[in-house]
Design a protein around this nucleic acid. Structure first.
Length: 698
DNA sequence: CTTACGTGTCATGTT
DNA sequence: CGAACATGACACGTA
């Protein structure tokens, strides 16, 4: 049902409050929706110019696109202008958007996506166990100290100093728990190493996750990192998988971000399916214990001080395990720049006196991949129509190490983006149409009423008749801004105010009746003026005058039906007059309708332009966030790798010698523990694990 | 003269 | 069913 409605024809300066307002009007028919949807879609595509792959980032959650494709036209539906000033905070909803739920949902989800810049990693613990051959072949979990149980070594414990009591107790507890899990079920082992390990070694690394461990992300992130035996290709593959998972999760806007990041979907093959091997053969547990990753729950993306101090904290637990030849932890761990530790594949100086092959850098491939990904992002951003400012901004942000500044919705690049696009993509329409609309239609929106009055011309005419310097443009201008409050007299129902009704009188009578005394105007100018005024009159006005219609066209057009009929009944009118009056009324109303229609159409275009700009902003923001995530992930991996190397470098066999990275590797288990296993087994597991995600993904 | 644009009008469909 | 409204298409005037 349509009440007195009009188009909110907004100028650019009005977009703010218009975009923040929402009104809900009657539902249009499905056909209309489809028609309008096609129109909007077409306009949108043409406005975009370049292909904007917003769906990749926004799926279909943003109202504009969704509405365009699926349903109610947000921009091209009718407006109850009374509500136009109702504002909603923040992200623009289309003033005529019907689907408020969609809007709020999209808004909330967008906020959640924005919140992704806080990349949190829950606390977890890394328990490192030495798994190696026991010369005696009879080590069980109940005898942890028989082998390399360094934490039971009093000499080593002394290193920790007196303040380590708490950690020791923690260590003891974790140790015994792990013994239950691992050692207690470990059968006596003897003979060849590989034979020693159970058939289902992979189950070790897929062990049951501990409570403190997020099922999804943590394993996803860490498990591929700690299997240092994988080839760069494998790691890249895993990294790609990781990233795709992250992307999917990040874009899974139907669930909260935290849920996405922390709780993998129930069927997530990467997070479930962990089972502790019933018979986990451990020869000797020990050497490293509870090398903690706790503290990672802080904002990881920034590597806040807490996180930076993490290695130090863990080092204190490591200290008792480490013989005297360890390097300073601060020098190796506290530094943010871990590249030196990292990329030289050799373990740090403390590690290796064995001339084995260098430890393959398990993360080099990952980082390279990350770099490539980021670079490709940059290319993508540039290719897909971001203006140079945006692109350079993106580049700057990526290059800068100053942390994350992801509040990009109002970032300079966003502003420049919108400005740039509005000045470039819509230069023609926004410069011309917006200027036109801002003058003509802003008042239209302000006033809102349809109150078209063909009388405006008449009024101008009449006013001009009394004015010496009549300006031809004035009539037109008044017509354009007939909704201006100052033009209330143009409104049909106020017509009687200060309005003479000699409009339809014969020109001669009109002249004599209305014009100022002859003293002020010469007859020649009077005639000229009459001619001019004749030209100013519309055709219908001329016709009405010719047919001697006894009332104004304005009344004919704008009077309500009853009053209109009443008016007609007061006069004796010929059939030709009645027909003309009906035509005048019809045409007049249609004229108003056409004007409204055009304003609405223009408004639609402006709104679509704004939607496009919003989407481009969103896309740019999401791209920046993605880059930030990649950076955070890279930093986290560096940390993990540093920890890995640190832990590995401090492991000592029964003879106090470090383990060769070519023969042993630390294996990350799902329950947070870390096992030292022969590299051959690690390779096997890596291969096995590598296959699984691929199969699952299909 | 051509073209783009604004406007009015008509036909037709919708509310 | 008629009035009012919406809109595509066309005509016309003008810069």
């Amino acid at each position: 049902m349509w009440t007195v409605e009009t188009v909110s024809h907004v100028g650019l300066e009005d977009l703010d409050w218009v975009s923040n307002s929402c009104t809900f009007r009657a539902m249009l028919s499905l056909k209309k929706y489809l028609t309008e949807g096609l129109l909007q879609f077409t306009i949108l595509l043409s406005l975009i110019g370049v292909r904007v792959d917003v769906d990749t980032y926004l799926t279909s959650q943003l109202p504009p696109l969704r509405e365009i494709i699926l349903g109610p036209s947000s921009a091209y539906t009718q407006t109850q202008f009374h509500n136009l000033r109702n504002t909603l905070d923040g992200y623009g909803i289309h003033p005529k958007s019907i689907d408020l739920d969609n809007y709020f949902t999209a808004r909330r989800l967008l906020n959640q996506v924005r919140a992704l810049d806080r990349f949190q990693v829950p606390t977890t613990e890394v328990n490192a166990w030495l798994v190696h051959r026991d010369p005696e072949g009879s080590v069980s979990g109940s005898q942890p100290s028989s082998g390399l149980a360094l934490e039971s070594s009093s000499g080593l414990q002394d290193v920790t100093g007196p303040d380590n009591g708490v950690r020791e107790s923690e260590t003891e507890q974790g140790f015994s728990e792990d013994l239950e899990d691992l050692g207690a079920v470990a059968p006596p082992v003897s003979g060849d190493l590989t034979k020693e390990f159970p058939a289902d070694i992979s189950s070790i690394t897929e062990a049951v996750p501990s409570e403190s461990e997020p099922p999804g992300l943590q394993n996803n992130l860490l498990s591929p990192l700690l299997t240092g035996t994988e080839s760069p290709f494998d790691l890249e593959q895993q990294w790609q998988d990781l990233m795709s998972i992250m992307e999917m999760q990040a874009m899974e806007v139907n669930t909260s971000t935290s849920e996405v990041l922390y709780n993998a979907p129930p069927g997530d093959p990467l997070s479930t399916n962990y089972s502790l091997a019933p018979n986990t053969p451990i020869n000797q547990n020990v050497s490293l214990h509870q090398a903690s990753l706790g503290g990672c729950s802080q904002d990881f993306s920034l590597f806040s001080p807490e996180v930076e101090s993490l290695p130090v904290a863990s080092s204190s637990t490591l200290l008792p395990l480490v013989p005297s030849n360890s390097t300073s932890l601060n020098s190796t761990f506290g530094s943010t720049n871990l590249a030196g530790l990292f990329f030289p594949p050799q373990l740090n100086g403390t590690a290796n006196d064995t001339a084995g092959p260098e430890l393959p850098d398990p993360l080099g491939g990952l980082l390279d991949e990350a770099m490539l990904d980021e670079i490709s992002l940059m290319d993508l951003a540039i290719e897909e129509g971001f203006n140079p400012v945006q692109a350079s901004q993106l580049e700057e942000e990526f290059d800068s190490d100053s942390g994350l500044s992801l509040d990009s919705s109002h970032s300079p690049s966003s502003l420049s983006s919108s400005e740039g696009s509005s000045s470039s993509s819509s230069s023609s329409s926004s410069s011309s149409s917006s200027s036109a609309s801002s003058s003509a239609s802003s008042s239209f929106s302000e006033e809102g009423a349809v109150g078209y009055s063909s009388d405006s011309e008449t009024l101008d005419l009449e006013e001009a008749e009394g004015a010496v310097g009549y300006q031809p443009e004035y009539s037109k201008f008044c017509r354009m801004s007939y909704q201006d409050p100052s033009q209330l007299s143009c409104l049909p129902y106020l017509e009687h105010v200060g309005h003479n009704h000699t409009y339809n009188m014969a020109p001669s009578a009109l002249d004599s009746a209305d014009l100022p005394p002859p003293s002020t105007l010469k007859k020649g100018s009077k005639e000229k003026q009459a001619d001019f005024l004749d030209k100013q009159m519309s055709r219908d006005e001329h016709r009405a005058r010719a047919m001697k219609i006894p009332f104004t066209n304005d009344k004919i057009i704008n009077l309500p039906v009853e009053e209109f009929n009443e008016l007609l009944s007061k006069y004796q009118l010929s059939e030709a007059q009645l027909s003309l009056i009906r035509d005048i009324r019809r045409r007049g109303k249609n004229k108003m309708a056409a004007q409204n229609c055009r304003k609405r159409k223009l408004d639609t275009i402006l709104n679509l332009e704004r939607d496009v700009e919003d989407l481009q902003r969103d896309k740019a923001r999401l791209l920046r966030e993605k880059v930030e995530f990649l950076r955070s992930l890279r930093q986290m991996k560096q940390k993990v790798q540093s920890l890995y190397q640190e832990v590995f470098g401090r492991l000592r066999d029964e003879n106090g010698r470090p383990y060769s990275p070519s023969q042993y590797a630390l294996q990350y288990a799902g329950d947070g523990s870390v096992l030292l296993i022969p590299r051959t087994l690690a390779d096997q597991q890596a291969r096995r694990q590598e296959r699984k995600p691929k199969d699952r993904r299909k």
